[in-house]
C-alpha cells in the first residue's frame, strides 16, 4: 500500500512567486498605455497627468506627502487596533453568552447597513477637528468585519470536536485556546484583512469632512486649487499605504496559519 511510503516531494513554487511578476507585468502594461495615451492625445497635465508626471510630482512633494502620510497612517493604525481590541472580545462574548447573542448581536449585524462614513460629520461636530473623530470613524468602519468574521470563526468548531475536548477533560480555557481560537483564526484573519482596507477608507473620508492634516486633507486642498497632479500623487501614496497594510496582514496570516487551505503549499 502506498500508505507506508514516505510522502513524495513535489517541487512546486509557492503561489506568490508566480503571481507577483504577472501582476507587476499587467500593472506595467496599464501604466504604459496611460503614458502613451496622454502623449498621443496630448491631455493637459492639469487634467490628466501622465504616470511620469505623477512620479515627478511625488519626488518633488515628498516632504509634504511623507508628513501627511504619517498622520493618515497613525489614524489607520490606531483605529484598526481599537477595532480589534473591542471587536474580538465582543465576538467572544457573542459566542459564549446566549444573552449577548440574542440581545446585542442582531443589533451589530443590523447596524452594518448604516453607512458609517455618513456619521463622519456628526463625529466631527461632537469631537472637534483633532485625531479623535478620524480614529473613531476608522475604528467604526473596521469593527464590523472583525466582529462578524470572528463570530463565524468561533462558531465553526464542529460539535464533535468540542465533545472530544470535553471527553479529554479540557477546561473552558483549554477549549477556547486549543480548539475554538485556532479553528477561528482563518476567519479572524479574513475579517482583519477586510478591516484594514476599510480602515484606509474610513480615515480618508473622515479627513475629507474636516481636517488640517492627512492625505485626505491634501487631496481636498489640492483639488480646490486645481492641483490635479498633487491629487494623483496623494492617491498613489494612499494606495501604497493600503496595499502595504493588506500585504502585512496577509503575511502575518501566512506565517501563523501554514496549515490553512488558502495558504497551504507543498513543503517538506
Amino acid at each position: 500500500m502506498t500508505d507506508i511510503a514516505a510522502p513524495a516531494v513535489m517541487p512546486s513554487r509557492p503561489a506568490w512567486q508566480i503571481k507577483v511578476p504577472y501582476a507587476l507585468l499587467s500593472l506595467l502594461m496599464l501604466l504604459l498605455i496611460w503614458q502613451f495615451g496622454t502623449m498621443i492625445f496630448k491631455t493637459p497635465p492639469y487634467l490628466l497627468p501622465s504616470p511620469v508626471d505623477i512620479g515627478f510630482k511625488i519626488v518633488k512633494d515628498w516632504k509634504l506627502l511623507l508628513l501627511h502620510s504619517g498622520v493618515t497612517t497613525f489614524e489607520i493604525v490606531t483605529g484598526f487596533i481599537i477595532s480589534v481590541l473591542i471587536g474580538l472580545p465582543l465576538a467572544i462574548l457573542v459566542t459564549y453568552s446566549p444573552m449577548f447573542d440574542k440581545a446585542i448581536y442582531p443589533l451589530i449585524v443590523g447596524s452594518q447597513t448604516i453607512p458609517k462614513v455618513a456619521l463622519a460629520p456628526l463625529m466631527l461636530a461632537w469631537l472637534g477637528f483633532g485625531y479623535a473623530p478620524k480614529i473613531l470613524i476608522t475604528a467604526l468602519v473596521a469593527f464590523f468585519p472583525i466582529v462578524i468574521n470572528s463570530v463565524v470563526g468561533l462558531r465553526s468548531a464542529p460539535p464533535q470536536m468540542l465533545h472530544l475536548a470535553r471527553s479529554m477533560g479540557a477546561s473552558s480555557w483549554q477549549i477556547f485556546f486549543r480548539f475554538r481560537l485556532p479553528q477561528a483564526l482563518p476567519n479572524i484573519f479574513a475579517g482583519m484583512k477586510l478591516a484594514v482596507v476599510l480602515a484606509v477608507i474610513g480615515a480618508i473620508v473622515a479627513e475629507f469632512v474636516g481636517a488640517d492634516a492627512g492625505l485626505g486633507y491634501v487631496i481636498i486642498t489640492a483639488g480646490s486649487s486645481f492641483d490635479i497632479p498633487r491629487q494623483f500623487a496623494a492617491i498613489v501614496v494612499l494606495s501604497v499605504i493600503g496595499m502595504a497594510f493588506f500585504w502585512l496582514a496577509s503575511w502575518i496570516e501566512r506565517i501563523s496559519l501554514p496549515w490553512h487551505v488558502s495558504i497551504r503549499q507543498t513543503h517538506h
Binding site: 464542529p158 464533535q160 470536536m161 465533545h163 472530544l164 475536548a165 471527553s167 479529554m168 477533560g169 479540557a170 483549554q174 486549543r178 480548539f179 485556532p182 479553528q183 483564526l185 496559519l257 496549515w259 490553512h260
Partner: peptide, 24 residues
C-alpha cells in the same frame, strides 16, 4: 472516543494531534 469524522486539528501535525490527549 473516535467519531465518524476524524476531527483532527488541522493546525497540528499527526504526532501533535495524538499528543493533544496528553497535553490536555
Amino acid at each position: 472516543i473516535v467519531f465518524q469524522q476524524d476531527v483532527l486539528l488541522e493546525w497540528r501535525t499527526a504526532l501533535q494531534n495524538v499528543l493533544l490527549q496528553a497535553e490536555i
